[in-house]
């Protein structure tokens, strides 16, 4: 069976401490080709040593623009410290650069998801229906029911955001496989919350359970490259015991729909 895949959670171009070279774009393109993945929503990763997101975003726009199928996913930051452009300008710049989504990193960039801190940025994103990625490790530790092993479970913060901004598409990434008990009711309660499979959504028949309970619309195929072995998320989807139209929606249809909804 042929299923078109777009990797919603991958990237290139960053560098981690101890590494001599940044992660080359060609390495990402190589696995996309090997796994017959048509395109990617790409971030700057590894993110560990990146501090200047305006420059990093500009590099991302340029490199993605040079290759068919690559869609940038830049990082946006509340400009309340005066170090980043105003909210609408950041959003305009992202969309002019071809962004298909943006990433917020509250914990890493030192801001909490509190309305009085980030409302103008979130409102600007909601007005344009720009999908927003939140990674588990980047959220503040609003609650920690699972302890240090999983570095906190800040789903309450994501829920607050989803409830306050119902027209803002939110995409959760990097959540531990053990969170199904919380993830499913979150996605059922807030239909603007989505999740990407990459990485670490490894639970037995997890896709099947979500599709049975919620339908496929809120699930996006993603690999978690460069952390995870990308093929794991391909085999997970291709062997899942779900209908072919659900597989197609998860593989690329849902991301296409979200990106078409952006007011450019």
């Amino acid at each position: 069976m042929t299923v078109r895949l777009i990797d919603a959670y991958t990237g290139f171009g960053g560098i981690a401490p101890g590494e001599r070279e940044h992660l080359p774009l060609d390495e990402m393109r190589a696995y996309l080709a090997e796994l017959d993945i048509d395109g990617a929503l790409a971030r700057t990763v590894p993110e560990d040593m990146e501090r200047d997101w305006l420059s990093a975003n500009d590099i991302l726009y340029r490199l993605c623009g040079e290759h068919d199928g690559l869609i940038p996913c830049p990082v946006l930051i509340p400009p309340t410290a005066g170090d980043y452009p105003p909210e609408h300008e950041q959003v305009d710049r992202a969309l002019a650069g071809g962004a298909g989504a943006v990433q917020l990193r509250p914990k890493a960039d030192n801001w909490p998801i509190l309305d009085w801190v980030c409302r103008p940025l979130i409102q600007a994103l909601q007005e344009r229906r720009v999908p927003v990625f939140l990674h588990e490790r980047d959220l503040p530790l609003a609650d920690v029911p699972f302890g240090d092993a999983h570095s906190g479970v800040p789903l309450a913060a994501a829920a607050d955001l989803a409830g306050a901004y119902p027209d803002l598409p939110i995409i959760l990434a990097g959540f531990h496989y053990s969170l199904m008990r919380t993830l499913l009711p979150l996605m059922r309660t807030f239909r603007n919350v989505h999740m990407t499979t990459g990485y670490n959504f490894a639970v037995h028949r997890g896709l099947e359970h979500l599709v049975r309970e919620l339908g496929p619309e809120q699930i996006l195929f993603g690999t978690g490259f460069p952390v995870a072995e990308p093929a794991m998320y391909v085999t997970q989807l291709m062997y899942a015991d779900i209908a072919d139209d659900a597989r197609a929606a998860i593989g690329s249809g849902n991301l296409d729909r979200l990106m078409k909804g952006i007011v450019r």
Partner: peptide, 8 residues
Amino acid sequence: LGQAHQLG
């Protein structure tokens, strides 16, 4: 964990 996932 899922066998389909781990095969990958």
